[in-house]
Design a binder for these strands. Structure first.
Lengths: 205, 205
DNA sequence: ACGTCGCCATGACAGATGTCATGGCGACGT
DNA sequence: ACGTCGCCATGACATCTGTCATGGCGACGT
């Protein structure tokens, strides 16, 4: 397998970005894009069919997100290494991506020239992590929210009232308020909306 | 000037996307990327220096946004045509972009192969508009919000309470609540949070 | 000159929200 | 067996929010 070109899979929900990244990486003589997909659900089938050396996954995708797709790929195709390429440097994303088995994590405002290098390093078995993000990630740490609190905050994202959240989760309204209250406390917010924002910013949702 | 290659400027805050688009467009023999910038403020100086035929601008950028940059370019360099390339198909964006003098509007999930065509059409003096978006845009129309209502909603985006918004805008709390209430009514929401979301979704903020 | 409209403000009211105390249930580790 | 913890629930309370009626002010168009 050595001496051959590195086989790549690209996953990004925006077709234009996907195609552009393909063009960018295709310029490198030692890299070859063998598959492109636009949703998280399509990642694993494509990996199994094309057996790429490295899979570049976005985190935000319809269906399965990049983190969940990473876990799937690691389980079903351990030879394929995963490099997360994402828009948002949410601190929690990095930690969760690495826990899921990703070999690298790059945000989309790193210079284009470095992407090919990141791919080569990942392929070589090294770990590639955005330097600025690493420190933030350690500071933010794990989500302090329990699973219910997380669910309630997720349901509150669209501006639903307590009654709506309770109906969606089959809970009593009082319980929803209790979960919200403790989530607000844990996030240091004073507010439901604030709690949603900080939890999102930390990648806890 | 005909027979020559089309000179392009790229503006996108994400370096990776910028570089990738550059690679993609650079593959076309009749296109040439002559400048790349990462913020809205840098667009006009770069246009004046390099005199591109077509400027590809993202809407979401630090500093000046793509719409404002479009207006600047049209005013100071009328020969440069503007093609907006953006992530979000917010209905209001299209209308505002066209009003600002953009010649085209493409969302980032159109196939990569079509981008070069869009550039050529814009350069030829044609108008290029994402077909799916055009109808939405007509439906959504202009923002129904008054300037104060817009300001109040913007201030409410971070989850601030009425008191905080009032302090920020030097208004009475009652007045803030009135503006919020009418904004909620106009957006068809039942809620401050919902109002913020739908206003954002329509590009009214 | 008049009506309309946006903007600011006040006061009052109903309903939603956030907090707190309290209690029951099941899972888990020691 | 016991303590701890997450989860669910209830009731009560203070506060925040959203609505409505009302009024004054200035700008604008007819």
């Amino acid at each position: 397998m050595s001496g051959q070109s590195i086989r790549l899979l690209l996953a990004d929900d925006q077709a234009l970005v996907r195609g552009a990244l393909s063009a960018l990486l295709g310029l490198e003589p030692d890299l070859e894009v063998v598959a492109e997909v636009g949703s998280g659900d399509a990642v694993l089938p494509a990996v199994l069919e094309h057996r790429p050396d490295v899979a570049l996954l976005d985190v935000e995708m319809p269906g399965l997100d990049g983190i969940a797709a990473t876990a799937e790929v690691r389980r079903a195709a351990p030879d394929t290494r995963v490099l997360i390429v994402t828009t948002f440097g949410r601190p929690g994303y990095l930690r969760r991506a690495l826990q899921a088995g990703a070999s690298g994590f790059v945000v989309k405002d790193t210079p284009a020239a470095q992407l090919a290098d990141a791919v080569r390093r990942v392929h070589a078995g090294l770990r590639v992590v955005d330097p600025g993000l690493a420190t933030d990630s350690l500071l933010a740490g794990e989500s302090p929210l329990t699973s219910r609190e997380t669910e309630v905050l997720q349901a509150a994202r669209d501006g639903s009232a307590v009654a709506g959240i309770a109906a969606k989760l089959f809970l009593s309204e009082g319980t929803v308020r209790n979960h919200l209250s403790s989530a607000i406390g844990k996030t240091g917010a004073t507010n439901r909306a604030e709690a949603v924002l900080t939890a999102e910013g930390n990648g806890w949702l």
